[in-house]
Simulated scan of single mutants.
Amino acid sequence: MGGSQSTRKLSVDNENAIQVSQEAIDRIQAQLQAKQAEQPQPTPQYTAPPPPYYDQRKQHEYAAEEAYWVRRIENLKRAHDKINSGMHIEYQKTLKEANELFDMVKDDKMASKLPPCQEEKAKVLQCYSTNPDKSLLCSVLVNEFNDCVCKSRVAAVTAS
């Protein structure tokens, strides 16, 4: 974990790149070689491998760190599962409540599917069709229809 080098490579295509002539490249390489020749190469002081106890200590440190992160990830997974299950329970409860509300509305719509006062309406329409020029003769039936509509409105308001 984090102990190895990354093997990712990046390539960039740039159409607006500056083109350098071969002569310039040769000059730059010659200058670099001259500078490297001027600098003395450092001699290694200690080339033997580190003592074995050092490697064992590092291995124990890496193992302890690995165990720590494994425990941490497992704890986070358990916490996530607990939160997820709680959210799922709440979702199911809310869905059930919403379905119950929709069922209530649907039942109310079915109960009030037929408009009220259909008989009175039919009597008023028949009276008007039989007496086209004498509409005042139907006033008693119109008043009965009006009373029925008012009663049904009051009943609907008190029911809700």
Rank of each mutant, 00 (worst) to 15 (best):
N75C: 01
K77D: 13
F102R: 09
I83N: 11
H88N: 13
T43Q: 02
Q59T: 08
L114M: 14
P40D: 05
H88L: 13
Q33R: 09
M87A: 15
A122L: 12
R57Q: 15
M110D: 13
R78N: 07
P51A: 09
K96S: 10
Q33E: 10
E100K: 00
T94D: 12
E65Q: 11
K113G: 07
T94P: 06
Y53G: 12
P50W: 11
K113M: 07
M104C: 06
K96H: 15
R57D: 14
A64F: 08
Q118P: 01
P52E: 03
E100T: 00
A98W: 11
R78M: 02
H88G: 08
E38P: 02
E74A: 10
Y91C: 04
A98L: 09
S85A: 05
P115I: 15
Q41V: 07
L76E: 04
E74Q: 06
P40V: 10
A122Y: 07
K77G: 11
G86E: 15
R78S: 02
I73P: 01
T94Q: 13
W69D: 06
Y91W: 06
S112G: 13
P40S: 09
Y53S: 15
E97M: 13
D107Y: 05
D55Y: 08
M110C: 09
K93P: 06
E61H: 07
N99M: 11
F102M: 05
K96V: 15
Y68K: 11
Q45H: 00
E120R: 05
L76P: 01
Y46G: 08
P40M: 07
K96A: 15
M110T: 06
P42W: 06
Y91L: 09
Q118K: 03
A111I: 02
K121N: 04
K82T: 02
M87I: 15
K96C: 14
C117Q: 02
E97R: 13
A79Q: 15
E66V: 07
Q45D: 02
T43G: 01
Q41L: 07
D107Q: 07
R72H: 14
E100L: 00
Q41H: 05
I73M: 03
V105E: 08
H88D: 12
L114N: 10
D81V: 03
E61T: 02
M87G: 13
Y91K: 14
E90C: 04
L32F: 04
T47E: 00
E119D: 13
Q33A: 09
A64Q: 06
Y53K: 12
E120M: 08
A64K: 09
Q92I: 00
A48D: 07
E65H: 03
L95N: 13
K82C: 05
K123Q: 08
A37L: 01
M110Y: 05
N99P: 13
Y54T: 14
A34M: 01
H88C: 12
G86Q: 13
Q56H: 11
A64W: 10
Y53Q: 15
I73Q: 02
P116N: 02
E74N: 10
D81P: 01
I89H: 03
M104L: 12
M110E: 12
P42F: 06
I83R: 15
S112W: 04
I89R: 04
E100A: 03
E100H: 00
Q45F: 11
K93C: 08
L101H: 05
P50T: 10
I89W: 03
A67I: 01
A64P: 04
